[in-house]
Design a protein around this nucleic acid. Structure first.
Lengths: 166, 166
DNA sequence: TATTGTTATACTCTATAACTATA
DNA sequence: TATAGTTATAGAGTATAACAATA
């Protein structure tokens, strides 16, 4: 690992306040910390945050092809192929050729996928609670509201109206 | 580019609310958006966010070796070598061998580095304002305060007391 | 023997281009 | 001719291991 020994006078000093007080630094590291907690929470289920997100989308919307799924999530279709490969190898999703258009694969959750998603979601929610622990209840609500506001107007189906990346 | 044509009935629909309402999603995409704005703001100065962060740390703390710099920023020393290489090629920083310990390189800002940092910092601050525009003044303050709170107690010199990553 | 800077290497993540099969 | 899925390849970004110079 990092194996920092700190044998000299140099204590494990972090970045200066000039850096850590910047909004960009705070956002990035808050995100990293939550992602870390989330990854630990999901690990027992053999999935990572990204795979969990795919499961959520598949679960939430009507049956979609890989390409539609990729567009929804803002990743390109080659990335989606690998993602579905992984999830199919874990037997959490299944590809079915669309009988109406044999070029397309419709992707759906398996029974195991549904139960895994339910449990994973709950574990991830607990991680989120740990992330927020120590905050006054109202601050947790504030945080989500403010983040939604800076992300710009979002239509009913969750579509962002500002250009999104990734 | 993405060249998504949407020739069919499928409008450019985004991820469903089941995903976009999660704190992890909001944090990640807020961070991506600010990073994007920041990158655009810094581009005219020929540096990226990470390089700007290095300049800030070099500017803010007493003269440090590459290794100390790397520790401060939570990157490993091989990454710091490449980072300093870049910044030195742009004549923004200079390596000086430490006369007291000839294994070490003390890194400092050049005159050009100082003026560039000043201008870049100001441009980046403006990007941050654009990111927050549309938010009530108090929400912007809330956001920073809440993020600082979830990041855990931070000592005077900016050192985090919880384990940090990256 | 340990530490600093360096280089070479590998690994992850993602994007681009090209191929196939279908339409 | 265009589209969906796939594969191969290349590019960032970052981590690990090994090496030279110095302590």
């Amino acid at each position: 690992m990092g194996e920092q020994s700190f044998t000299r006078e140099s204590a494990p000093t972090g970045p200066p306040a000039a850096l850590t007080n910047r909004l960009g630094y705070l956002l990035k590291h808050a995100q990293l910390r939550l992602a870390d907690l989330g990854a630990s929470a999901l690990a027992p289920f053999g999935i990572n945050g990204r795979e969990c997100a795919v499961l959520i989308v598949i679960d939430d919307v009507p049956p979609l092809s890989q390409l539609e799924l990729a567009r929804r999530m803002g990743v390109d279709r080659t990335t989606m192929v690998a993602l579905i490969d992984e999830l199919e190898a874990k037997a959490l999703v299944a590809r079915r050729p669309d009988p109406h258009d044999r070029r397309r694969n419709v992707v759906g959750l398996t029974e195991s996928g549904r139960t895994t998603l339910r449990a994973a979601r709950s574990a991830h929610d607990q991680a989120e609670e740990r992330f927020l622990e120590g905050l006054p209840e109202e601050d947790a609500v504030h945080l989500k509201r403010i983040l939604r506001a800076v992300m710009g107007p979002v239509s009913d189906d969750g579509r962002q109206e500002r250009p999104q990346k990734r």
